[in-house]
Design a protein around this nucleic acid. Structure first.
Lengths: 206, 206
DNA sequence: CCATAACTGGACTAGCAAGTCCAGTTGCTG
DNA sequence: CAGCAACTGGACTTGCTAGTCCAGTTATGG
């Protein structure tokens, strides 16, 4: 992998095909449970192509992590950009619960599952995970900050802490949902988190 | 494995040694990432002993899941039996955060990590996971129910939903803590959950 | 003290997985 | 159109892993 190379249109397409196939497989089998041969078969490529675009399996895994993070943000638009009101939070919640239910309750968070598996690994991969979570959390933190600055939330409310706690509820809710094959735990976790934001809302929304 | 057999004291000790070693290894490397040879080396046993006590690797994994669930409950006593007050919840929170910090922020929830990895697998294993989570959650649900019945919590409060949401916050907090190598996300998640219980508390605690 | 069953050691097999290698094809670019 | 670099195919190597097998040792109950 000498990736400063040119990368023609065809090459880019092949690389994307590999990452997409790997992401799908790793979502349902985990990163360790997915073999490169599986990825090659699913993407219709060969060993040499994979090693042409990626240094090794870990490198591919990091690409998959970034891919899933992008996919999540894409899926959650435009709701992710309208988290500066209680109504906006409710819409985001509904979209997430609906998406989970649509997946037959199978497969938790594409990012959370990978994080769980890879957080104990090398520093490089963990850094990517941290960045991806931060990127995902940013719009939430921004929305809560806007609410506080506007006076919709109590001045004592800590947007950063709130956003992190909500993400934790989301991740835990998805894990329990996956385990129980039911979206109920996810719904309850998010409802609790949003109720907590409600309790910090001021009577007069400014 | 014809486990209706006798199982002498020595046999029981060997079996326990295998499960303990496997649990430790799987906590830091995951179930798939732990080889049976690793387990044998760490426990000072041999292949034939492992297959004498367990049908196959999946069988061992299920034993590890049950073992971790028991260990967690044991570690969280006596706080787990005193979750029928806001003060009790706070003590439980402190114990969990301290335990996480004591582990150098490494390794999330011994049960949650396994659940994440195994929830997509066979029904048998998933059932064990569900039971273990239910068992762990039971004291929390009981405490919240007692609070509501006593009048410390609003009659509208739903102890089952509350307990499940709190467990979700705990799991998500542990996942983010593992990813960031910091107990901050865990503390924030639990603080939010407990603040939510506070908001449901009645002014007069009876 | 003998027979039976629990228990133990470790060599062995079969299959699979990551990563290597090289010969060949395609497609830019001057 | 020539030449170089990007790209592709797939066989091959090396090492590991779950699971098997059997010969042998220890405990126990009659």
């Amino acid at each position: 992998m000498q990736q400063a190379a040119k990368l023609t249109a065809r090459g880019a397409a092949t690389k994307a095909r590999i990452v997409t196939a790997a992401a799908d497989l790793m979502l349902e089998r985990g990163a360790a449970g997915t073999t490169l041969d599986d990825v090659l078969a699913a993407s219709g490529t060969s060993k040499s192509q994979l090693y042409h675009y990626f240094g090794n399996k870990d490198d591919l895994i990091r690409a998959v992590v970034r891919h899933q993070a992008q996919r999540i943000q894409q899926d959650q638009r435009p709701e992710l950009d309208a988290l500066d009101s209680l109504a906006g939070l409710a819409r985001w919640r509904d979209k997430i619960v609906a998406a989970q239910a649509a997946h037959d309750q199978v497969g938790g968070c594409p990012l959370g599952s990978l994080a769980n598996e890879l957080a104990g690994g090398d520093q490089q991969t963990r850094s990517v995970l941290q960045e991806c979570f931060a990127e995902w959390e940013a719009p939430l933190r921004a929305g809560l900050t806007a609410m506080r600055d506007r006076g919709s939330l109590s001045p004592e409310a800590d947007p950063a802490a709130l956003a992190e706690a909500i993400m934790a509820a989301l991740q835990g809710g998805l894990l329990l949902a996956k385990t129980h094959r039911s979206s109920r735990p996810l719904a309850r976790a998010l409802d609790m988190a949003i109720a907590h934001v409600h309790s910090l809302a001021t009577a007069s929304p400014a």
